[in-house]
């Protein structure tokens, strides 16, 4: 019932300029045990998540480790097979495509990984890393190939003479630039950025973030920006979704979410970020305990074990995830009490 409602909501909202529509996405990992590897249960890494992103916008997905945000990114690109749901990119359901159709559609959706060290093949020169898929999909004619690669490299602040060098000669920040160039070379509509700056030093982070924003403006790229760093997400995103144990608990336009957080988890998350001002002593909401294991999530509202406002109903019944006005989606029983 709940699933159908969300589907309808999303479809209603869907405007012409929607690039990505994720509807009730589910990804379960089986838990196997015993000699015969019988399936004894499921880890519900992503359990019914829906959102959509408009062209040229950035959707920030935040949450703590193990909440399923990385799984969402990979499942949308079908790097792992989904358990259920739909991901519609340009009117086509990615999950319904055959292997062949999928391969053709690959250039439209790209990914940037967290670790710039393991995401570049150490035995390939930079030019080939960037251009490999360009050749594969015949994006530009053979004659223009080299110029095209150089142009992409220029856009990503890479010097032209890097083209014949190998990844081992570059620093983390430069490697991340190469990763972005590789994704960009395919002219994608959407880029999933999975913690693209978490592994980098602070001063390099700024460079990458600035570059991503410039490229977005220039090429109208849509980002799904996954991060645990709230300040970075606040800076780069237009809409932000907060995840907890495989579900979105709150989603709203950035300013709305950061100024007026509704879900107790969002509030705790926001107040947990250290403020770089020694004179401001924040009135902090400190959550007790840790995230429960996703293999054995609590009954009812998944957050009730740590929630400072836990009520009886929270232990029994999962709250509904719905719009409370101004595209501010929340899943919390407290909202109905107001």
């Amino acid at each position: 019932m709940k699933a159908n409602d969300t589907v309808l909501d999303v479809i209603d909202l869907r405007a012409k300029d929607t690039v990505l529509d994720v509807i009730d996405l589910k990804k379960y990992y089986p838990i196997k045990s015993g000699v015969v590897q019988r399936v004894v249960g499921h880890v519900k890494a992503v359990d019914g998540v829906s959102f959509s992103i408009k062209r040229g916008q950035t959707f920030g997905l935040v949450g703590e480790s193990g909440c399923g945000k990385t799984t969402i990114g990979r499942t949308i690109l079908r790097l792992t097979e989904p358990t259920g749901g739909k991901a519609i990119i340009k009117g086509r359901d990615v999950f319904a495509l055959s292997k062949r159709e999928l391969r053709k559609m690959r250039p439209e959706m790209q990914i940037i990984f967290q670790d710039p060290y393991s995401s570049l093949d150490p035995r390939m020169p930079v030019g080939e890393i960037i251009g490999e898929a360009v050749k594969e999909h015949n994006i530009v004619p053979r004659a223009e190939y080299r110029d095209y690669i150089l142009k992409v490299m220029h856009d990503c602040e890479l010097r032209p003479y890097y083209i014949d060098r190998y990844p081992h000669e570059f620093s983390g920040g430069q490697r991340q630039c190469i990763c972005i160039a590789r994704a960009l070379a395919l002219n994608p509509d959407i880029i999933v950025a999975d913690e693209p700056v978490s592994a980098l030093d602070v001063s390099i982070q700024a460079q990458i973030i600035n570059m991503m924003r410039d490229l977005q403006e220039k090429r109208q790229i849509t980002y799904l920006f996954i991060s645990h760093d709230l300040s970075v997400v606040e800076y780069i995103s237009d809409v932000v979704g907060v995840m907890y144990l495989g579900n979105l608990v709150e989603k709203a336009p950035k300013t709305e979410l950061f100024k007026n957080p509704q879900h107790p988890y969002t509030r705790a998350l926001l107040s947990a970020v250290p403020v770089p001002n020694p004179d401001v002593k924040m009135n902090r909401v400190i959550l007790q305990g840790d995230i429960p294991s996703p293999a054995n999530p609590p009954k009812g509202c998944k957050f009730h074990t740590r929630c400072p406002h836990c009520m009886d109903i929270c232990r029994e019944q999962a709250p509904e995830y719905k719009d409370y006005g101004g595209e501010h989606f929340v899943a919390c029983h407290l909202m109905d009490q107001k």
């Binding site: 300040s231 970075v232 606040e234």
Partner: peptide, 18 residues
């Protein structure tokens, strides 16, 4: 270092990158 952190700057401004 400070200006390169998003929480030091207004969201519209560019981050300072060293």
């Amino acid at each position: 270092l400070m200006k390169s952190r998003p929480n030091f700057v207004e969201s519209g401004d560019r981050l300072y990158s060293i």
